[in-house]
């Protein structure tokens, strides 16, 4: 109890204490921290800014020597115009949207159901299945792309949306995160509803899910970012340029002929834009999502 009072007084007088004593000591330190962060942020933003800058140059300026920031011919949106002429990038962006939205929704359905069962229901094989699920977190499953592709050939799922989507629905980490969250929800409400004769599925839908909104949002954001940016599997399973997602199309199809530096940078900027815009609007939620779901690995 005494400790609590002491703490209280410290908190109350915290500003004053800092003002007299250590604060002055800290000032040069804080300036140095600002300087370090400013330099680092500048370094970190430069590649992206340089890409944007190049994308608004003509190809002649982009490949002119010596390298200069400002283009001799002035800025132009020519590279972007050429992208929209061919129509590849908008099509790939559409494919990416279809695939990522489907992966996110289906992963949420599959994972919340499984996590609920692992958290609340006893069924034969529960322990073994959960142990296997957790164990698979530690294994880089990408290593089995070759047998997986051979299997997709047999299932005739190569060059289909389902072929891209289905293997991306397995998210053991998310099941772990959701189960841990469900475990913390008090069961009183569910018990009462059960006594009142509500079905198990209704309880899940109307009591458990609404209480889990924050964690579901976090999982959704995390899965969506992963699916939007996923490269290896969509790259392997699609050969048809009309079915490619944005990251795959950008890599697999060489745009235009000859020197295309400005064009490539315009493509990169366009491909980056959707998530960057989403991030600017939902910064807080996205950061919280990464922190909560990422840390769950512990």
């Amino acid at each position: 109890m005494t400790a609590a009072t002491l703490h209280g007084s410290h908190v109350a007088s915290g500003g004053a204490v800092r003002g007299i004593g250590p604060r002055r000591w800290f000032e040069p330190g804080r300036s140095a921290a600002y300087l370090a962060l400013a330099v680092l942020s500048l370094i970190w933003l430069t590649p992206f800014l340089w890409a944007v800058n190049t994308s608004f140059k003509s190809e002649t300026d982009a490949s002119a020597l010596p390298v200069s920031v400002l283009p001799a011919e002035g800025y132009t949106t020519g590279a972007y115009a050429r992208i929209f002429e061919t129509g590849d990038v908008p099509l790939w962006a559409f494919n990416s949207a279809v695939v990522s939205i489907a992966v996110t929704l289906l992963t949420l359905i599959v994972s919340t159901l499984a996590a609920y069962a692992f958290s609340r229901l006893e069924f034969p094989g529960r322990r073994v299945l959960y142990a296997l699920t957790i164990a698979s977190i530690m294994v880089p499953t990408q290593i089995f792309i070759v047998p997986l592709f051979d299997q997709m050939l047999a299932l005739k799922l190569v060059d289909t949306y389902w072929g891209i989507i289905l293997p991306q629905l397995i998210h053991p980490v998310m099941i772990f995160v959701l189960k841990r969250f469900f475990d913390e929800i008090p069961m009183e409400l569910e018990d009462a509803a059960l006594v009142d004769g509500a079905s198990r599925f209704r309880i899940f839908l109307q009591i458990v899910l609404p209480q889990s909104r924050p964690i579901i949002a976090a999982v959704a954001i995390f899965v969506f970012i992963g699916a939007w940016n996923n490269f290896l599997w969509p790259f392997i399973v699609t050969n048809d340029p009309n079915l490619m997602t944005l990251p795959v199309g950008l890599q697999a199809v060489t745009p235009g002929y000859g020197v295309v530096f400005a064009l490539r940078m315009a493509q990169a900027v366009l491909a980056a834009l959707p998530l960057v815009i989403v991030f600017l609007f939902f910064q807080r939620q996205i950061i919280r999502s990464i922190s909560t779901t990422g840390i769950a690995g512990s």
Partner: peptide, 15 residues
């Protein structure tokens, strides 16, 4: 610091 993490590997590689 965080924004690059949102980019696809293809975008990062091209840049």
């Amino acid at each position: 610091i965080f924004m690059p993490f949102l980019l696809a590997s293809t975008v990062v590689s091209q840049i």
